[in-house]
Simulated scan of single mutants.
Amino acid sequence: MDRSVLTQPTRPSRRLLSLTALFALVCAVLLTLTTAPARAAEAPAEPAAEPTRIMALGDSITGSPGCWRALLWQDLDTAGYADNVDFVGSRSPDGCGFPFDGEHEGHGGILTTGIVRDNQLPGWLASADPDVVMMTLGTNDVWSAVPTTTLLDAYSTLVGQMRDANPDVRVLVAQILPMTPAGCAECYDRVVDLNAAIPDWAAGLSTPESPLTVVDLWTGFDTATDTGDGVHPNEAGWRKMADAWYPALTGVLDDLPTAD
């Protein structure tokens, strides 16, 4: 027997080399697939945009229970805004027959001039930190025969405090509801005078950084059918209020700068 045949090393076939290379390639691909998700999990998530914080500021027409706010929130939810807004304030939601985002700053019996006198707004603003304020104030001042000029001065003080807390705050100011309460025959005309003065006052105070928007709650509101006492809205009145606030508020929301 020829021993050279027995001792000669065996060379691997080209077929075997090809299979080995293919196996190595498959292992490399599997290793990449199993490690990629781990790297993806380590990547920082995109920060979520903060919701727009909205404070409803007013008296018993805003609170107690102020279910126009509930209807307004329901309308915002239906239109797809609700996930991007947060109603804020120190007052808890009121019972209006269905769940809604109901925190607010509506204080029954309060006067605009009283808020200024007692310096109450800065504390409320510090706690709620609103981006938008919906202000419905003046009913109790009118009922107390506070002159229109005095009331507008109080409005100006409140807007200044809002801007001290947030220079870019958007302020929506209501031309308030008509009033025909028993024992105040002059109230109706006082409201007419106040509402007539609000647009010029707002135009003089509005700025590009912090615009003031006037919201007409007066037009189409009838104290005989939309209130129970000539002052406080009933269910029909709440619906009219929500319908008046909705285009004004969504117009502001649509105009707010979006996060990068």
Rank of each mutant, 00 (worst) to 15 (best):
H107A: 09
H107Y: 12
G108Q: 10
G108S: 14
G109K: 05
G109T: 10
G109I: 07
G109Q: 05
G109V: 08
I110W: 05
I110T: 09
I110E: 05
L111Y: 02
L111Q: 03
T112K: 01
T113G: 01
T113A: 05
T113N: 05
T113P: 00
G114C: 06
I115G: 00
I115K: 01
V116T: 14
V116Q: 09
V116Y: 04
R117V: 13
R117M: 13
R117W: 08
R117D: 11
R117Y: 08
D118P: 02
D118R: 08
D118Q: 11
D118T: 13
D118F: 09
N119M: 10
N119G: 08
N119C: 08
N119Y: 05
Q120A: 14
Q120C: 11
L121Y: 01
L121T: 04
P122Q: 07
P122V: 14
P122R: 09
P122K: 10
G123P: 02
G123F: 09
G123A: 08
W124I: 12
W124A: 05
L125D: 01
L125Y: 02
L125A: 06
A126S: 12
A126E: 15
A126F: 06
S127L: 14
S127V: 15
S127T: 15
A128D: 05
A128N: 03
A128E: 05
A128Y: 01
D129R: 15
D129I: 15
D129C: 12
D129K: 14
P130W: 06
D131V: 13
D131K: 07
V132Y: 03
V132H: 03
V132S: 06
V133W: 00
V133K: 00
V133E: 01
M134D: 04
M134A: 09
M135V: 13
M135I: 15
M135A: 12
M135R: 01
T136K: 04
T136D: 09
T136L: 13
T136E: 10
L137W: 02
G138T: 10
G138Q: 03
G138S: 07
G138Y: 00
T139I: 15
N140R: 06
N140C: 08
D141P: 02
D141L: 07
V142T: 07
V142S: 03
V142R: 00
W143V: 11
S144T: 08
S144V: 12
S144L: 11
A145K: 07
A145S: 11
A145G: 04
A145W: 10
V146F: 04
V146I: 14
P147R: 04
P147C: 11
